[in-house]
Design a protein around this nucleic acid. Structure first.
Length: 276
DNA sequence: CCAGCAGCCTGTGCGC
DNA sequence: TGCGCACAGGCTGCTG
């Protein structure tokens, strides 16, 4: 489940791998589901011959600048995008391969086929759907914006707010749970019940856990790999996610798991009391 | 408008 | 040992 730190790690490792400046000499689409826009035929024609000018990120979207256009990629649950030598055997579920001018390939694989590519139109007509609805990056989220989000979703659990990409862009299930544990706020607390201090604590915890995760090149349980095919290491440092029954690193109480905001949710019943 | 949930998809791991 | 099913979750779209 690539979230902001994982997508940023992919971005950085693609840059380190020298993707910038290469020309896309060919595009092979093995599974049309992975190309969300336009149709695969036009997708190939529009991208062939284009030079990769830069690689950016917005929320969980990877944004590959190919000149007049931007190729947006979302990894969703199991997507991988990495630089590969052509002689390396093709993994199953490899849906799109970009041939590059230095002889290498940029490969996209996605077991669950949730992820894929959108080629943004030069007039920006595709961007409103994808990018303009996104909330601020977690580092840019202000206290006022946090308060406004709480006001708009007073009856929702705070976990749902952190997962709402129009509120803040980049958190997923892992880092929502981790941020709330660091902030000592129960994930089922309603947004309307949060004090100013709690809002501030969540905002700080969110930034801190994302920074720490990025410094360990993301979290890998099964699927995540960076732009050079390597796993991350932050799974060793998680406090609550996937630690049901294990002792809380802060107080020793067993970590609990329940279903909140429709998601498997991990928390410490002692550090994060339901009553607040 | 807001809140909650089905559905998309496939591999994994559990119970029987 | 093998089968069936629940589960994992980002996001869209539907419903109440």
């Amino acid at each position: 489940m690539p979230e902001l730190p994982e997508v940023e790690t992919v971005r950085l490792t693609l840059l380190e791998g020298g993707l910038q400046g290469l020309v896309i000499t060919g595009v092979r689409v093995a599974h049309p589901d992975a190309v969300h826009w336009p149709d695969p035929q036009r997708f190939r024609l529009e991208l062939a011959g284009r030079r990769i000018e830069g690689i950016g990120r917005r929320g969980k979207f990877l944004l590959i600048d190919v000149g007049k256009r931007t190729l947006a990629c979302h990894l969703r649950m199991t997507g991988r995008l990495w630089l590969s030598r052509p002689e390396e055997p093709e993994l199953s579920h490899t849906h799109v391969v970009f041939d590059l001018s230095d002889g290498r390939e940029l490969r996209f694989r996605d077991v669950r086929r949730f992820g894929g590519f959108t080629l943004l139109e030069p007039d920006g007509s595709m961007a409103p759907d994808l990018l303009e609805r996104l909330g601020p990056e977690p580092t840019d989220l202000t206290g006022d914006e946090f308060a406004a989000g709480c006001l708009r979703h007073t009856r929702s659990p705070v976990k749902a707010l952190l997962l709402d990409q129009t509120f803040v862009a980049g958190l997923g299930n892992i880092y929502a749970d981790e941020a709330l544990h660091r902030a000592r706020v129960h994930p089922a607390r309603t947004c309307g019940s949060l004090s100013k201090q709690e809002q501030r604590a969540i905002r700080r915890a969110m930034r801190a856990v994302l920074r720490d995760a990025l410094s360990h090149r993301g979290t890998t349980f099964l699927d995540f790999r960076d732009g050079s095919g390597e796993p991350g290491a932050f799974q060793e440092f998680l406090d609550v996610y996937r630690r049901e029954g294990l002792p809380c690193r802060r107080c020793g109480a067993p970590i609990a798991k329940s279903r909140i905001a429709g998601r498997g949710t991990h928390f410490c019943p002692l550090c994060q009391p339901e009553g607040g």
